[in-house]
Nucleic acid binder design. Structure first.
Lengths: 335, 335
DNA sequence: CCCGGCCGTGTTATCGCTAACATGAGGCAA
DNA sequence: TTGCCTCATGTTAGCGATAACACGGCCGGG
């Protein structure tokens, strides 16, 4: 159906009312310099009177560029992607862009490629892809040249714009915080190892332990869910030598806390726990969770900046921005 | 390499390669009946060979309708809206529609109207508005006629398509479950009262208590956050007569659980708690949370159905669909 | 005093598609 | 055979914008 029952006013209608040519209307709309102030006002008045709004499709057709930005994200309620999307849309709207989403159930190459395709069909002016695994990154392989792309938490070796959270630094802060509290070593419940995020956190954790000369226990591999954290916790809770655990995100920590509780291991008295993400609930777990906070809004903004830069200058080398996370100390680490 | 400049192949390029007119290509693309099978195949081959993809902007321009659906949602990581968006995008993609998002920081009329406007600029073919407050609904007042709109959890008295979760039934199930467990009455920590969701849950809770002849304590007003649940819990924990609490969502319950824990009130032995939403973490709280699960995917699907129905027949009365939530019994209610 | 350049504006040509009408080849009833 | 209708396809005319060029009037410099 039409957006209006009949098609609404077009540029020529405005032009007729203002007594100018449609081209002059176009100039007013696009803030061209050479329009007399008086004419400009007359045109604006006509626009207001008719309630005219420019037809983006027509503009897109003639310019070959839309005012649409595409986001490819994981179809999930994972805190990171959801926060990112919200922040990105907000920033994009302020910059005059609309945002279209294509979500993906799995991060395999085909799914991502299909989502990207849907966006290309829409002639998006640029693409933000949350591509936290190598397989997701492969979905970008067949991308036609000339489409500005920024990946979030993607492969640093691909030739796209890239925004990442400094996972290694975040993990280091968490691990060091636990070591500083006097723990001999720190165990780690990791995210899915094919995620760059998870890999970075593992690396930061491991390197920190090594630098401190601490033993590096085998990481407990999980996904991002509370269920997996609970499962990991059931195992770790039985091991008396485990006194400090760094989990790859807060949901894992939540599951872990429950498992520790059930086994009668007190947090932080018996076991210290540090999470990652700082979900809004983290401060209200039992006990309040010490965690690492990545600034998702900053990531989204950085992504938009990179995208706009690529759109402005297609030949420039795509930039990379790293956002530093911050340790938020609460009450889940013994002192 | 390129067919014409950098704009990629157009319909005429396909036509030339297939030895037909561009109109025939159009007919093949749109599955028109009167095309010889042989021609159809030749055209498809040409499309594949050139990697041609139709220009949606041109199609939108000439037909006056886009293949874009707009979603207006709250800029937040609230579980409900986030789940809905994800499910909706998935369903829309399968139906051949792209989804553009406009999020809103506050649910006041101006913000919602601005978000709607952004979508109208894009000539969306239909609109889904998550409008859980009266003020948000007002943002739809100035909508031009002819735009198919479905609101989610919106005002039942507005003349739009509407999908709601049966909040009253959900709250009744939760409250009744607590009464059945032997509690004399049930306290309620409510969501923001200007939300229809919150109002419905309050109503279901109150009516259930009244029907059972139980005393109706004053609802404790909160927002949707764990922080507010914690604050409410600090108060309720001090009142020995409080033995059963129904919270308007799971995050509130999480905060409440922590407050009860700190005051030494055991759940479910001393106090029973029931939440709402069934976030993935609910099963891993201390103790596992009994809660009410609305099927967000079903809501999203229903919304899309309603939208497509309106688009197919603009004169039909907009439908309303109510989705029944389900009580998920875990371990936070004494037996 | 004349001429070139800038300013403000109009005219025309696309962009890539679909809708509407045109065309021509067969098939079948009269 | 003569229409006339049905396929299968082609031709033409926009949709509503921007881009490129055209065109007078006014300005300032030689």
């Amino acid at each position: 159906m039409d957006i209006r029952g009949s098609r609404g006013p077009a540029m020529t209608d405005v032009a007729r009312l203002a007594g100018v040519s449609h081209q002059t209307v176009s100039r007013v709309l696009n803030d061209h310099p050479n329009v007399k102030e008086q004419t400009r006002l007359r045109v604006r008045a006509a626009i207001a009177e008719l309630g005219y709004r420019p037809n983006r499709a027509a503009r897109t057709l003639v310019t070959g560029r839309s005012q649409l930005l595409g986001v490819v994200t994981l179809n999930s309620t994972l805190f990171g992607p959801a926060s990112l999307l919200a922040a990105f849309e907000q920033a994009a709207a302020e910059a005059g862009f609309a945002v279209s989403v294509a979500s993906v159930v799995r991060l395999d190459r085909e799914s991502v490629a299909a989502a990207v395709d849907r966006h290309l069909d829409q002639r998006v002016a640029g693409l933000v892809v949350i591509a936290p695994t190598a397989s997701a990154g492969e979905g970008l392989a067949a991308l036609p040249a000339g489409v500005p792309v920024v990946t979030i938490d993607g492969d640093p070796n691909r030739a796209h714009g890239l925004v990442t959270v400094d996972q290694v630094a975040g993990a280091r802060a968490a691990t060091q915080h636990l070591l500083d509290a006097g723990h001999r070593t720190v165990w780690h419940v990791s995210g899915p190892p094919d995620w760059y995020d998870a890999a970075g956190r593992i690396e930061g954790w491991r390197r920190t332990l090594q630098a401190a000369g601490a033993e590096v226990p085998p990481p407990v591999q999980a996904d991002w869910s509370a269920a997996a954290g609970y499962a990991a916790g059931q195992m770790l809770a039985r091991m008396p030598e485990v006194t400090a655990v760094f989990t790859a995100n807060d949901h894992l920590a939540l599951g872990l806390l429950r498992a520790l509780y059930e086994r009668g291991r007190r947090v932080p008295e018996d076991v210290s726990v540090v999470g990652f993400d700082d979900v809004p609930e983290a401060a209200f777990l039992i006990p309040p969770l010490t965690t690492v906070r990545p600034d998702f809004a900053a990531v989204a903004l950085a992504g938009l900046d990179l995208l706009l830069a690529q759109m402005a200058d297609a030949d420039a080398a795509p930039g990379q921005i790293v956002v530093e996370p911050e340790l938020v100390v609460r009450n889940s680490v013994r002192r």
